[in-house]
């Protein structure tokens, strides 16, 4: 034990603090790679970090061009992250019951520190995500990036667009104000027009014949757990598939 500590203590006593801090097992366990300023470390940091390993070590130079992608795919994901964090914070203050939901919203806006900003941020990010995901689809189309071998990922993208709409729409009911319930009434009436299974679809969405407590808890659970899980799975497939299809598209 003392033998192992000796170099550390020696460094300390000689005033070599930087070495004392970095040249030990604890530091190296938590910071597995040196600062990525050499090609070796630039590669290692991508291998050794679970978040960065979504990316390859190197990419084509053209892929960096901002006017090619406008970062729209990455920003869609980033908006999802903002929405997850702000959404979890909102969950601490919001109870999905018709008797209290509206009052909780009022409290968020008037009593909770930064509650108003938190709610605004969540709402604007949700609108933003719908817009950015749609723009991302336009970018992919107008650059021909859906073509072989990326047909499958284009299809996954269409599912992600649908899930984004659905996630946003399920959140729309939760404030339980007039805007929310009547927007959802309009929406579920539209779904109720489905041929053959219209009544059943509407019943499934509302949890009854009329919008009420059952509807709120259904949409809440879909909004905070079920749909985020589903969309995460499809996002994982979407990102993984980019790598498998040879990175983001570029000129041949």
């Amino acid at each position: 034990m003392m033998n192992e500590l000796r170099p550390f203590l020696e460094d300390l006593s000689r005033g070599n603090f930087r070495r004392a801090l970095t040249e030990n097992r604890v530091f190296k366990a938590w910071f597995r790679t040196g600062y990525p300023s050499t090609p070796r470390n630039q590669a290692l940091i991508m291998f050794n970090n679970v978040f960065l390993h979504l990316h390859p070590v190197r990419i084509r130079r053209e892929s960096l061009k901002i006017t090619y992608t406008f970062c729209l795919g990455g920003l869609s994901f980033f908006l999802f992250l903002i929405l997850t964090v702000s959404g979890v914070l909102l969950m601490f203050y919001y109870r999905p019951a018709t008797t209290v939901a509206y009052q909780d919203m009022k409290d968020l806006q008037t009593i909770v520190n930064f509650g108003l900003m938190l709610r605004n941020l969540h709402r604007y990010s949700a609108h933003g995500m719908v817009i950015v995901v749609f723009l991302h689809m336009l970018r992919v189309f107008y650059t021909g990036s859906y073509k072989p071998p990326r047909e499958f990922n284009w299809g996954v993208g269409a599912i992600l667009l649908f899930l984004t709409f659905f996630l946003s729409f399920t959140g729309y009911l939760l404030p339980w104000d007039q805007l929310a319930v009547w927007a959802v009434t309009v929406g579920t009436n539209m779904a109720g027009a489905t041929p053959f299974i219209g009544e059943q679809t509407r019943f499934l969405l509302l949890g009854g014949y009329e919008i009420g407590d059952n509807t709120l808890i259904r949409w809440y659970v879909l909004h905070v757990i079920a749909l985020p899980l589903v969309i995460s799975i499809f996002m994982a497939v979407h990102f993984w598939r980019i790598r498998k299809d040879g990175g983001i598209s570029g000129p041949l």
Binding site: Q42, L52, H55, R58, R60, R61, L64, G74
Partner: peptide
Amino acid sequence: ERLVYVWPHLVTIEFMSA
């Protein structure tokens, strides 16, 4: 030469845009 390292080239752009 056509390839560039993701760190720092791409991660910087991603971080700044985010």
